[in-house]
Write a protein that binds this DNA or RNA. Structure first.
Lengths: 267, 267
DNA sequence: GACATGAATTGGTCTAACCAATCATCAGCA
DNA sequence: TGCTGATGATTGGTTAGACCAATTCATGTC
């Protein structure tokens, strides 16, 4: 019907831009159940002709969808909807952090809120397999006390597993997002952690694991809370790699202060 | 220097795609502090020539950045970094919800975890102005008991204000993100709420407000928890607009069942 | 039957142009 | 003097057509 592209009439105003029409189209396929995780989207050329927009517009839209993790393109193969558990990329948070100068304190606080909640849910619902996974990660932590980088990997995996055991994909996605940001920052400084700190951290993880295994919700939450508080303390003692202020209400970094906050006139 | 575009040499392998180079370029500007909230990016044509890629590629990258909320384009004016408090769009979550069938229960659970934490922080740190804003929203709630749509607006604003009063931009962003998803779903069904439910909800909000004003952290958390639990109860009684299952571990909607979960072979 | 080969498919990129919204400038008028 | 409106430069929005590059798969040879 619109293959020749006569949109000159104007009797039916197009309220959306080309790229937005593509996104709406894809969203519609998803809502109608025609597109599910693991599926492949129509080829860019097909989308372009079906929707009646140019290929560059399709590409811009697909880049937008890829940015929020809805699709993933593979050269020569196609564009796919990622399979596996739902996941939110941490890039948005990373950009926000760079733009607004999030502090380490603030990050720990957010983690604390989310992960304490996740630990509580995990204590209620963790399956035997998930409990076993947690046990594996705890032993991994104790086995890598002398390898801070590897320790960090087990650390991340433990927290990821707790989030998964919460059986709430939204909470899990949020934890993943924050963890991604944390890992991004942490891998540069992980080597500075002292042996004693790693030992303490491993103990804390073990305590969390035991509480979850015992299905003790309050103990799990308390253990996670204590762990994150302690981790925050330890890392605030490590030499800071950057000028990140430590206080939540502390003044912003030097380069930021005194800026007259110019606003755009006609938003 | 590269206006004529001689990139045939190949002696310096480009490891990133064109769009990625643009994103890296912008990210670098941000990290160096040359680009801050409220600023305008170079014109697309300038970016293209500076980076050495074509304009469609720049556009694709800019669409990607716009999708995660890092930039915002205004036709005829330019592309800007949004000013104001840091914010995460709720589209990623919305797509994930559509793709994986998040339930209302799961959403309330995530809200509960985040907002109970936010309420606790708000009780510790809310400024007098923020407390006053909360008071305004509470009166707005009581004033709109007979207008469910307006009530919903005050409802959202109250929760948004609590998040802002947490003085943690990460937590606030996350709450905003979830709230956006909630609002998206809720506005269709808000009219079905009963008068009595609205009255109860307004009372709950008042209780939260009073606890925050009194700087009673535990009371604030408990009040928020009770409120969200109650809201969940009420809304599960309302006729469902869609086939959203109520249980966290409930089977997926009809259109989803029985699908053999075809996977892509060579990821 | 196993493996190399090449065509078809599909994403990745570019050039060159035009349309459309915005904005700053400046002439003209009150 | 001060305001208003026209106008051209700037900037995002979109298109068309072409070519490159990675992947896939059917084909044919050994």
């Amino acid at each position: 019907m619109s293959t020749t592209g006569e949109r000159r009439q104007g009797e039916e105003r197009v309220l959306e831009g080309s790229a937005d029409r593509v996104i709406t189209f894809v969203r519609d396929l998803i809502d109608r159940g025609r597109l599910r995780p693991g599926d492949r989207l129509p080829a860019e050329r097909d989308l372009a002709s079906q929707i009646g927009v140019s290929r560059p517009s399709v590409r811009a839209a697909l880049h937008a969808l890829a940015a929020i993790g809805v699709v993933r393109s593979r050269h020569g193969s196609g564009t796919y909807i990622p399979d596996g558990p739902p996941a939110l990329g941490s890039e948005p948070l990373s950009f926000l952090a760079a733009l607004h100068g999030f502090t380490r304190e603030e990050m720990y606080e957010a983690r604390r809120i989310l992960e304490v909640g996740a630990a509580g849910l995990a204590a209620e619902r963790a399956t035997p397999e998930q409990v076993a996974t947690l046990a594996d990660e705890v032993s991994g932590l104790f086995a890598s006390l002398n390898d801070p980088q590897l320790f960090l990997v087990h650390d991340i995996n433990f927290h990821r597993s707790v989030a998964a055991a919460s059986a709430n994909p939204i909470v899990a996605s949020l934890v993943e997002m924050i963890s991604g940001l944390y890992y991004e920052r942490r891998r540069d400084t992980a080597a500075r952690a002292s042996d004693r700190d790693l030992r303490d951290a491993a103990d804390m993880h073990r305590r969390i694991y035991q509480a979850i295994r015992a299905r003790d919700v309050n103990a799990a939450k308390r253990a996670m809370e204590d762990h994150l508080m302690q981790a925050r303390e330890y890392q605030s003692k490590e030499p800071a790699d950057d000028a990140q202020p430590a206080g939540a209400a502390a003044p912003p970094p030097a380069a930021r202060s005194g800026r007259p906050r110019r606003r755009q006139a006609a938003h």
